[in-house]
Amino acid sequence: MLELRLVQGSLLKKVLEAIKDLVTDANFDCSTSGFSLQAMDSSHVALVALLLRSDGFEHFRCDRSLSMGMNLNHVSKLLKCASNDDIITIKADDDADTVTFMFESPRQDKIADFEMKLMDIKSEHLGIPEAEYQSIVKMPSQEFARICKDLSSIGDTVVISVTKEGVKFSTRGDIGSANIVCRQNSTVDKPEEATTIQMKEPVSLTFALRYMNSFTKATPLSSSVSISMSSDLPVVVEYKIAEMGYLRYYLAPKIED
């Protein structure tokens, strides 16, 4: 028996909007530690990892670990039927081939339930080793989204370079080139508006902007984003989900032939 009650149902709506364009089908894994997902995009270049810890749910019952295969477009369609302030409960029986999403209005005067068929999805699970990154940039998530959008009107790839002076996002294309430099500004009044750079070593990597733009669909989940880079690892773009966990995207770099 699985029963997860999430008071802030809008979080789940935002999570689905942030991953459905990158991944079509995925297994949602549920265990005593929480509700999680790990899935690669169809070209095996990017990976999305979600964790919603059990203690972030108002009620979390998971009698035994369960993996539920779902089509993310279908889940997104169902969740669009929930209002932003609805409480969402996910229910499934052990060995069931369906999952039920229940939406309750905050005043408890409207209750809707939607049953969805589960799918059998064979996915490759990747072991991601813990790593120390050479550079970690934390910046406002809206700023990062704006930069990725602006640069993609000029080029297809972005070079992200971190030095102690700041982080530089560069691109070039048929019409010309562009560089955007963000410097540390940790003295701003609101912490969420700060750009901070933890740098052990300078690092510069090239990525496909198409994926970066897809990651920025997670912007509504968090006011800040962290970008962790090492020269021999995929970049990690992380959006923290307040009090509950995270949504992380891993992207393999492009290397010069």
Partner: peptide, 14 residues
């Protein structure tokens, strides 16, 4: 010319 690297080069497939 840039070549896109696959994730599996970095991570173990379990």
């Amino acid at each position: 010319i840039f070549i896109q690297v696959y994730l599996a080069i970095y991570f173990l497939i379990l």
